[in-house]
């Protein structure tokens, strides 16, 4: 806007007594005006962008999986997330921290079949196209290796000896009937 104004400045400002104004000062004021407008409306636009992007409250949550001491080294347990996603939680090493575990999606990144753990071969195996992954979820054989696709990992944490995984909570199927509880009495909503 400021730029357009400049091109036509001579005509429009004709009636105003700023003809003798030094050019630098006029340019500065115009830039300042443009900057002010950009700052205000720009911030507004950024917030609008965040509004559209965020989609609101996290649709993921920390969910209890198992007690840490109930999973032996190399042992895997199948965990189903509230949205139905199937996870394979495996203890990789001795210890009490989340680093000792991995939580891998059991959906093969190739075409979406279910992989399973083969203890004798120490690998996750996808029966659809003979894809295989090591215990960390890295591809070792088949189409996933060719395409360098790994099994999706979910974040884990340990609290008081209990293992939690962060997983998606909702599916489209239960949109609208999510349970809400415990709004603080009289608490502000806006």
């Amino acid at each position: 806007m400021a730029e357009h104004g400049e091109a036509r400045g001579r005509v429009s400002d004709g009636g105003e007594p700023d003809g003798g104004e030094p050019n630098g000062r006029r340019l500065f004021l115009r830039a300042a005006m443009g900057g002010g407008l950009a700052a205000g409306y720009g911030t507004f636009a950024m917030m609008a962008g965040k509004f559209l992007y965020s989609g609101g409250g996290s649709a993921v949550g920390w969910q209890f999986v198992a007690t840490v001491d109930s999973v032996g080294i190399g042992e895997s347990i199948a965990y189903a997330a509230p949205n139905g996603a199937k996870l394979v939680v495996t203890r990789q090493s001795e210890g009490e921290t989340a680093d000792c575990f991995t939580a891998l999606s059991s959906v093969c990144p190739h075409l979406g079949c279910q992989v399973h753990w083969e203890p004798q071969n120490e690998r996750f195996f996808c029966p659809c196209h003979n894809g295989a992954f090591d215990r960390e979820g890295n591809p070792t054989e088949g189409p996933p290796l060719a395409a360098r696709q790994i099994l999706t990992r979910f974040p884990l944490k340990v609290e008081n000896g209990l293992l939690y995984v962060e997983t998606p909570l909702t599916t489209l199927a239960d949109a609208g009937d999510a349970e809400v509880r415990g709004a603080a009495p009289g608490g502000p909503i806006g």
């Binding site: 105003e16 700023d18 104004e21 006029r26 004021l29 115009r30 300042a32 005006m33 900057g35 002010g36 407008l37 950009a38 700052a39 205000g40 409306y41 720009g42 911030t43 507004f44």
Partner: peptide, 15 residues
Amino acid sequence: RMKQALIAALGLLFM
């Protein structure tokens, strides 16, 4: 000129 300055100031205030 004053209007331009005013707009600049108001823009910043808006921010």
